[in-house]
Write a protein that binds this DNA or RNA. Structure first.
Lengths: 210, 210, 210, 210
DNA sequence: GATGAATGAGTATTCATTCAT
DNA sequence: AATGAATGAATACTCATTCAT
């Protein structure tokens, strides 16, 4: 089951759902699940709204009762995935004080997340120009989030101030995105632990304070 | 001026060009130049063959006298660019023996190349799924090329053998690709030298032999 | 009125049609009717799918909701027509025992059918290479059907065994096809009865058992 | 070698040809020969003027120095073929007085001609609507020619006057055209003599004077 | 809320024909 | 006479999106 909960109707509303509401939510969830799978298999623009509707078992028009267009459903999937990923990374560093341990824990969380969500990772981590055009460049947003963390590191004296945090965050994101995509398609080439070890080493030693 | 010489009709043939040959080559060059610009501006699949022909000032059908389809012209641009880039990197490390000096020289060559070819870099370094589908994933090929260099480093004892060279090459390529794309759009954020310094530091320290 | 019922939505389904189903069937029928007319007037490949759609009063894309391409709609018309024709010829010889009477009855049925379906006959009987390419060479199939009948005649001793039935069926089909096409365009030249008389005479006397 | 001499530059001019004239005639002949072959192989409208020119080893534009368009070269081939065929049939009946012997002689001439020119027969005898559109329906013209012969037979008392000669000529042409096309593709099915025998029998007995 | 038939702009590609050289 | 680059109209087919039921 997808960790991003893409297909789970949210339950934060306080009131009991009517049957109609429940059915609507279910349809929406089915559309999201189908879109995820199809995007993963064929890429953003090789999938038509008809394909998604058909896969979800609803009529073509129904798609537009739930999403205003193809970009919207893509954006939604991307955002849900990113939120989940951030949460996982936050969890991973929770209570950890040492920077090296934290980086390693996050790296592990990241690889696990990639393994669990290999389908979405394929598209969301691809820096596809389409995706970007869709105003939802996941990597861009991810880089921003990482950047914040780096700034905190600088403030905390754990990273040399002369390194530009934006530059660094892009380097990290680019490195991980490409490596993960490659690895998911060739998982037999390196073990998860080797991968984590190598990338942490690169990331850490290059950015240690003198 | 494009460094890749995409638009320079080659002159190495021994015979005098007929006027027709010259005109044909000129048209072809105009199509390539237009394609470069348009791909850079809008991405591979937001550009039609009509757009390219129109921009080049020729009729729609003329495109097909020179390229069998959109993928072919893209592939041609990609390949010319990659060849040029490799040549530049080779030149940069020519006669250099120390690894650190070499890495730095290559990083400089890479940034200069990116500056000179900002238009192509935008698409070719984007890992666009379309581009990959076009069987000319520049980054993939570039990673392979880098991998070879890393293997030589291992043999030469300049890199620890326990680092998987494929993994490393993907990390390097991913990092540079993302960083360069970001930097070309925000060149005021870091100077070329800072960029080179930071990335070399990451790349080197992470992969030094113990 | 078309005898082939090409435009009659079939009603053999047990359930009530929804309004959508009815509308769909009506559109489909209009497309078939338009195609028939246009093919007849201009031949298979001088008619575009746009022409058909326009003539049927629907948008260009609508054509493809009903037929996968031009060849399919042609095949459908051809097959419906041939089925109807065979049924008519079978009816004509129903209960007839004498071969001469049967041949004459079928000849009459054939001319009547041609008169009623002059439009389709024009293309379907033309041995157009296009039509054949469309894998629906009506005449080929018709010849096969006739051949069977001839084989039965031989078995029944009503035709000399030394005549090759395939050869004969092609001769009959070729003769009728050409004659009917000519006659439909020049109906004033010979009366229906004269035509039937002449062709029956040729067909019968040449193939009588000694 | 084609009997229709399609590819033989004509020599009826009284004066010596200049070298330019000879070269021009040779090019023209090559174009005709290529067109014949290509039309036979792929049908009229699956052949482009470029194909013909390329096959003939000349530039695309050269085609138009010799023929005003695709229809003209087709017409020319058709007409040359028909002339040759008529000449053959005339030769076959030369000096023959008995109708039965004549019909048989012509049938033999026809089958021989078909065998020698199988390539052209494929298209020219196909009643292709294209060909007709090209204003060169060979079969139409052939039927007219046969009709004349029938009229003479009626005058000579060798055919009953009540048979419409036009109708009959279409029947004959249709029969032969279809049968020959079938036979050329399945020559092993019936021997030439069987074929001639069967068709003559049909043709003669149906049209004998009482 | 869901359906699904219909829309029509959009795109790749072909090819007869022209014309400057 | 021949060349061959260029033209551009024509055409099949796709797909996001709408809307009457």
């Amino acid at each position: 089951m997808p960790v991003t909960r893409v297909s789970q109707p949210d339950a934060q509303e306080g009131h009991k759902k009517t049957s109609a509401e429940r059915s609507r939510a279910a349809t929406r969830a089915r559309l999201l699940a189908s879109a995820r799978t199809l995007f993963a298999a064929r890429g953003l623009h090789k999938v038509t709204t008809h394909d998604i509707a058909a896969d979800a078992g609803v009529a073509a028009g129904t798609f537009y009762l739930h999403f205003s267009d193809k970009r919207e459903i893509f954006r939604e999937i991307a955002e849900a995935t990113l939120s989940e990923l951030k949460a996982r990374l936050d969890d991973a560093s929770d209570g950890v004080t040492e920077r090296e341990t934290e980086v390693r824990a996050q790296a592990l969380a990241l690889t696990d997340f990639a393994l669990e969500n290999r389908d979405v990772i394929r598209i969301l981590f691809s820096a596809d120009d389409d995706a970007a055009a869709v105003e939802s460049d996941l990597l861009e947003e991810f880089a921003l989030w990482i950047e914040e963390g780096r700034r905190e590191d600088i403030v905390a004296g754990e990273m040399p101030a002369e390194i530009d945090p934006t530059l660094l965050s892009h380097a990290i994101v680019g490195m991980w995105a490409r490596v993960l995509k490659w690895w998911l398609e060739n998982p037999e080439r390196v073990s998860r632990d080797e991968l984590v070890e190598t990338l942490c080493r690169i990331q850490l030693s290059g950015t240690h304070p003198a």
